[in-house]
Amino acid sequence: MTEQTRPLDGLRVLDFSTTIAGPHCSRLLADMGADVIKIESPEGDLMRSRPVQRDGAGTMFGQLNAGKRSIVLDLKRPEAIVAVKKLVETVDILVENYRPGVMKRLGLDYPELAKINPRLIYGAISGYGQTGPAAGRPAYAPVIHASTGYDMAHLFYQQGRERPDNCGIFVADYASGAYAMGAILAAVHQRHVTGKGQMIDVSMFEALVGMLLGEVNRAQFDFEMPSRPMYGPVEASDGYVMLATASERTFQDMATAAGRRDWLSDPRFEKYADRRMNWDKFVDEFEQWSRTLTVKECVAALEKHGVPCSPYLTVTEALQDPQVAHRGSLCTIEDSAGTYKSPAPPFRFSGSPLQSGPKVAALGEDTRRVLAEAGLSAADIEALVK
Rank of each mutant, 00 (worst) to 15 (best):
A236Y: 04
M242L: 14
E89A: 15
A372V: 01
S377K: 01
L120W: 07
R119C: 12
I116V: 14
R191G: 03
G62P: 02
P358Y: 09
S377P: 04
S356H: 09
D238V: 05
G67S: 03
E89T: 08
V241S: 02
L243R: 12
A83M: 05
T148D: 07
L319G: 05
L106M: 08
Q288W: 00
L185C: 15
T245F: 11
A301K: 13
M242H: 12
M254V: 07
C331S: 15
A178Q: 12
D92V: 06
V143W: 06
L376P: 05
K359G: 08
I20R: 09
K359R: 15
E162W: 11
D380P: 00
V324G: 10
V299T: 02
Q220M: 12
R69Y: 10
T314A: 02
T292E: 13
S247E: 09
V188Q: 06
T367R: 03
T90M: 11
D92P: 11
S356V: 15
G101S: 02
Y179D: 13
D380F: 04
A257K: 06
T19S: 08
F286K: 06
A134W: 14
A21G: 04
E334L: 00
Y231C: 12
D173I: 02
E303Y: 00
G351S: 14
P308R: 04
S350L: 09
R291E: 08
S41W: 10
R218E: 12
G107S: 06
Q288L: 11
L185E: 13
M225Q: 15
T5E: 15
D15W: 08
I20N: 08
F16I: 05
S336F: 05
G129H: 02
G136Q: 09
R12I: 04
T294N: 08
G149Y: 10
N65I: 00
T339N: 10
K359C: 07
Y110Q: 07
I93A: 06
A379T: 11
M181T: 12
V360P: 03
G10Q: 03
I144V: 11
K85R: 14
P308S: 07
G22H: 09
A258W: 14
A378F: 00
D266R: 09
A257V: 02
V143F: 11
M1Q: 11
D35F: 00
P118A: 01
Q320F: 05
P42D: 01
M242S: 12
R77S: 13
L293C: 15
V324D: 10
H305A: 01
E235G: 01
M60N: 13
N217G: 00
F282N: 03
H189I: 13
M242W: 12
A255P: 05
R137G: 00
Q53N: 07
